[in-house]
Design a protein around this nucleic acid. Sequence first.
RNA 1: GGCCCCAUCGUCUAGCGGUCUAGGACGUCGCCCUUUCACGGCGAAAACACGGGUUCGAUUCCCGUUGGGGUCACCA
Length: 476
Amino acid sequence: MSATVQPGEVVTRFAPSPTGFLHIGGARTALFAWLYARHHGGRFLLRIEDTDKARSTQPAIEAILEGMRWLGLDWDGPEYYQSQFAARHAEVAHRLLERGHAYRCYMTAGELTAQRERAQAEKRPYRVESAWRDCSAEAPAPDSPFVVRLKAPREGETVIDDLVQGRVTVRNEELDDMVLLRSDGSPTYMLAVVVDDHDMGVTHVIRGDDHLNNAFRQLGIIRGMGWPEPAYAHVPLIHGQDGAKMSKRHGSTGVMDYEALGFLPEALANYLLRLGWGHGDDEIISTEDAVRWFDLDQVGKSPSRFDVRKLENLNGHYIREADDGRLAGLVTPRIGSLIGRSLPTEEIELLVRAMPELKPRAKTLVELAENSTFLFQTRPLDFDEKATQLLAGDAPRLLARAWASLNALDEWTALATEAAVRSTAEVAGVKLGQVAQPLRAALTGRATSPGIFDVLVLLGREESLARIADRMDGAE
RNA sequence: GGCCCCAUCGUCUAGCGGUCUAGGACGUCGCCCUUUCACGGCGAAAACACGGGUUCGAUUCCCGUUGGGGUCACCA
């Protein structure tokens, strides 16, 4: 790893652990780090924290990369894997040992728990109290297992001027002698992050504020090594509707879950950006503007709650803005699985033509697909409950009249069909709606659809007349 | 429980001592447009947690209370 950082250059990173998909909270943190780097013309790095071999999986790594790409968060350089640097981590631990900033601790698991229980019984805060901290004695036995612990400072206080949280002070007596190297010689997360961030030249550590407490302990390593201290920005977590840290029980928490639910990446990104950050009255913010405007000092310190309804509203906006061809491409597979067959090119072209009428009515791609199926269904149609109601009573007779005047048309345009249907209603002495609604039901199988004259044109003369005939009173 | 952080409409936020009879957005509720549903337009209800200070003046500064959250591993 090279740590060539130009003076004044900004280097941020996203460091997920591959134990699952890309979490929505992690995605927002990544977005902030990405924006900060882009805003300052710096670099944004990606490091997979796979030191926990038991929990890290290849599918999880791929899921995270997929989520990042989907959201448009591109990283500079290759993705780094923390597990590759284990030797370097151990080297740093030994350097700390040489410098007297760490020590070998031979305490057994039993001693540790006994100590913890005693502290609990006496109701005093627990912190490791290792007899080996200031003891230069040799190991109890030549090959006794040991861990390497940081010799944390015990007096004074540590101050962090966090870019989001402001000045945070912690008394050093609150800090414990955390484990750096496990008894099997592997590095802990605490050691690994610090070493990797330093080696990668990370200048700004932007991460969730669940790491704020860790920052103070990690500083011990940095200072022990005499390394430059990075700037910290601990951004608040995303909470669920109940105000607690967003987790599985709040429903969908994976970025790609939202893709499956029919959200556009730009809508999710815009929503995530506005969660905990604001720029005056601006709500719809393009990536370009986000890069131009984003800065850490505007990030709020309090956690914000995830609100799907606002996300849906934003998604509806971005669907309306989206290119018809793109939307058709996104929605075609969804329609395919709804109607149980794939769409040939002519039908995809029909979908593109219908898109201007379809897209203002959908908040998600799921809805968009559902609202599109009537175009591709084959007769006889299935009718939902409301459509069936609309087709009862006088409807068949009115449909027969409408069929007759539509059938007499020379040209099949929205204007012409509208004139025909309006005159049908007029002649029959009923309101337009009384003809239009049964027509809609007969044509689409539903009670709601795009404008009925657009539907007529989209479906074409032959199919339209056939669908009406299926439902009209043949006697008249 | 210890430590740390936070606190403006139900939700996301604007506000960085006087411009606040507190602005915008989502959601909610009316009305308009209208063949349905959306879109769009107009309008309404809706918040500075509480108590002390500081100040000529606090939503804005300080302290406390209450409430919420985070974190306390040989996980990351």
